[in-house]
Design a protein around this nucleic acid. Structure first.
Lengths: 405, 405
DNA sequence: CTGAAAGCGCTTACAG
DNA sequence: CTGAAAGCGCTTACAG
């Protein structure tokens, strides 16, 4: 292996001169520069980034954790994130929870061991908030609540739920079935409000904004909103559970089941994949879409375009999500940098202080929601674990062939 | 940051003892071990993997290059690879060409700079074979030919083409349209055989096995086989070009175009996405599938299951592909290791020798094809750039609702 | 503007 | 079985 030392010898200059040329830092005379360049070319020198990273204590790699890549929503999200991060000089280490031996923990480990500069967490986690809070290195969540002080970016699911409800109410739907994850995820945080049962949460006057929902999983806000609005309009509503996102078998089975269990269903709402299977099942049964049956997908990935019919969808704004999330994680990484005053420093206290900086300000931001649909509920003092919220990314209803005008 | 030095001090032992305990290597008395463990726990010590990697000159990371993740074939492939690699102790650095600033070059760069231990290349490349051959670090290709000495794993596309042809001939198809990439990719290697035009390549008596095809892109064998077999059966055949895989707009447009240009088409063959859009377009036009129109997808990712109808598909065997490819790249990495006799060595010659080892034996393997459909054509001496081939992974025809019995 | 020196946090011969 | 020492290939103050 040819190293800087060899280049220096070949060019007849000192090691540091070579380093300066390689990194294009500081002042080097043209003469030196050329001699070094020539030597590098001659010896075919390639810098060892491992050494550089070691010294800098940075890898310019950011981990992106998703439940599974083989799901159109997450592959689209991952692509958008990689694109955005690449534009900002970062590499993406994509982790598909389902395909990693140790799940997300393995990646958190890499983060702690300095193999990554930060993590974007877009998967469900079974770990308690403490786990995340104690990590003390940059973490940003997408559509998840990981604990006080961990910034999070979310799609505006309350609005998503409203848009669906409006569409269905306006077109006279009478029996809506919605497909979603395990209902237990709806309230997986210690609650001061215990609206556990379907009927209760659907009908009770629970506020769906910054209080009333105690989950690590903000997506449920769309179900809750939908249930609430349909309840108000006295439209029959049923919720059907599918398994985890990576339960590939579950989708076709559920589609079949819905038609068996609810012969009079006239509107189905579910994630892109669920919706696609429902279109398929409906076509097979000869149900007339959208006259007899409307289908609305939640997510709006490419699958909604290729599922036999263009499916009307709530479209999450992948580009904006990726942009905000990337900005945020890089900001967090920056904070860590500043905390450590000069890398050569004795080092023992620096990471602690930087962690404190990061966490404090992360906390401040994360607890100031920027809701579009409601205001004035924040600022009522600190409430541990109560419905924290991050920046909200607007969603959009994109009309396809599966809904009525 | 708390380091080994702090742990050693706390435990009152030497640095090396701590290292031995952390890595669980060599002989350490139970007493020492416990004292060290206690100190680690007390100080919350986390080893810095950056330093470790730097010393070992290994990162246990393997790059996987695909054209785009937002494509069901490649996201399924990537998931399978990540799964397989994780089981063997490697991390996957997923690179979506479309979303990386510098395309594959950026990742090759990382490989050369020792940030990755190897690369699995599953995307098309515009670089000449020389580019890859000179890399001198572990690279394995999937369904690509990158140059002499670069091992490659391929699906058995010749068989894939035959299976499709059989199905179509048996069911009496009369006008087949197939959708594929730019025809220029079919012969992008310097050729001794110039069968460039569609009609010529479809009808001439070109052998479709280990000679006659000069492309870096083995997938074309399926088109060529299909063309050849349909030609023999005197079935009308047309080839329609879509853009690159990441041209998302292209698919629906092509589906539309096919029905406009070829009103009498009664069979369509294309990748999962193309096929899905064709199903959609056919349903919209009221074409009766499979009675009037058969559709066969090539790849067999989950999309074929959710496209309005279960699409009959040639299924590539993702699990086997991932297994063979992973084994192969790890084998290549191993060769590099052995070459370097003891890491502390002065180092200058070691990487060259390891490269030579790798390349020579890679070469030997790569030029011994294991075709299932033909035999005895190899061993006729060395032919530069002529139809090289690697291990073949069988494909399968999975019947769906879009073909006739 | 250039060079000699120290150091990033670990691992591994090597001497005790 | 344990400890002092050298070194992995770079970068960055610091003195000239």
């Amino acid at each position: 292996m040819v190293g800087m030392r060899d280049v220096a010898k070949e060019a007849g200059v000192s090691l540091s001169t070579v380093s300066l040329v390689v990194n294009d830092t500081g002042y080097v005379s043209d003469d030196m520069r050329e001699r070094v360049a020539a030597a590098m070319k001659k010896l075919d020198y390639i810098p060892n980034e491992l050494a550089r990273n070691f010294y800098r204590d940075r890898t310019d790699m950011i981990g992106v954790i998703v439940p599974t890549i083989s799901h159109p929503f997450f592959s689209t999200l991952a692509a958008a994130l990689q694109h955005e991060l690449a534009g900002r000089g970062y590499r993406t280490l994509l982790c598909s929870q389902a395909d990693a031996e140790g799940g997300e923990a393995e990646y958190v480990d890499m983060l702690q061991r300095h193999m990554m500069d930060g993590i974007i967490m877009a998967a469900h986690t079974s770990h308690a908030p403490d786990y995340w809070t104690l990590i003390d290195r940059p973490v940003v969540a997408f559509d998840r609540y990981l604990g006080a002080g961990i910034p999070s970016i979310c799609s505006d699911h309350v609005h998503g739920g409203q848009l669906i409800a409006q569409q269905l109410i306006r077109t006279g739907a009478r029996h809506v079935v919605s497909i979603g994850g395990p209902r237990s995820q709806f309230h997986d945080l210690p609650a001061h409000l215990s609206s556990h049962s379907l009927s209760q949460s659907a009908r009770s006057n629970v506020s769906l904004g910054s209080d009333g929902v105690n989950t690590t999983f903000p997506t449920v806000r769309y179900y809750l909103t939908l249930e609430h609005e349909l309840g108000q309009a006295a439209i029959r509503y049923d919720y059907v559970e599918v398994g985890e996102v990576y339960d590939v078998q579950g989708y076709p089975r559920i589609a079949h089941e819905i038609f068996e269990r609810f012969p009079d269903v006239d509107a189905i709402v579910g994630s892109d994949i669920s919706a696609a299977y429902c279109v398929q099942e409906a076509l097979r049964r000869g149900a007339r879409i959208p006259d007899e049956l409307q289908i609305i997908a939640y997510d709006g990935s490419y699958l909604t375009e290729a599922a036999g019919m263009r499916i009307t969808a709530i479209r999450q704004d992948f580009a904006t999500i990726a942009k905000l999330t990337s900005e945020r994680i890089i900001e967090e990484i920056g904070k860590g940098e500043k905390g450590a005053a000069g890398k050569g420093a004795r080092g023992s206290a620096s990471s602690q202080s930087s962690g404190a900086v990061r966490r404090r300000s992360g906390n401040a931001d994360a607890t100031v929601p920027s809701f579009t649909d409601e205001g004035g509920t924040e600022g009522q003092g600190y409430q541990p674990d109560s419905h924290p919220q991050g920046e909200l990314v607007p969603v959009q209803l994109r009309l396809g062939e599966t809904t009525r005008a």
